[in-house]
Amino acid sequence: MATDVQQKSDVTHHYLRAKKKFPNVWCAGCGNGIVMGALIRAIDRLGLDKDGVAVVSGIGCSSRLPVYLDFNTLHTTHGRALAFATGVKFAKPELKVIVITGDGDALAIGGNHFIHACRRNIDITTILINNKIYGMTGGQFSPTTTAGAHATTAPYGNYEKQFDISKLAIAAGASYVARGTVYHVQQLEKLIQGAISKKGFAVVEAVSNCHTYYGRMNREGDAVAMIGWMKDHAMPIQAAVKLPPEKMAGKFVTGLLHETDATEFCEEYRMLVERLAAKEESK
């Protein structure tokens, strides 16, 4: 269960902003808080210096996460967190830059920046909290809302198709793609830890629950029921690869789905600057 370093149960409290009002703004039982805990534990295990961490978010429920954290935090405009984060990282590569975004924020309005950040393979960790709905604005369907599911803008059932986030990220060039859930918190924490350590663009999809809208409109129950569903339907990739397709029916795969070593954007640029400087000296 707990990995090597014995992490104290109140470790999260040492990373919260003293001036912020708690409890957090999310609905009771919202998975965002669980993801925030996993992120803090991952950062704590990595022993990162708070001054060297920048957390950037867009707009949406998930994007209210950074304001609670005692890091350099940037709450930007809807869909643009990755573009802002690219500026932060590229300007100051020594910063560990982590983007917190949602399924709507990253894949609808932010889709263009998402695929280009993957393509560039810039050293940024993106935690994409996927609750399959726009929560902040009251329950509209998003690019990951299940077919047939109801939402305030899909009153007759969602007739659109969904993105497969990991396939999209892999195809676009991300070098670390993983999926976790807010039930399997320790796995999620390890995936985030790996993502932050990875030199390149890392995407961790955190399957989360929006019982306030998605659960209510689709009769999937409260937070406990939705998180319980994840517990019963997630299949770690190590096990999934051994199972025949029929055994995987209704299940979704979690864990590290893709990892490769590819040249990283800031590193490529640094080498260019060095080559030019060397050429200049040799003149």
């Binding site: 707990a2 409290h13 708690f22 998180i227």
Partner: peptide, 18 residues
Amino acid sequence: CAICWLHCPDFAITSNYK
């Protein structure tokens, strides 16, 4: 076993022993 405080969305549970 830590399941409760790891899953608490509001960090409202801590242990006196861990």
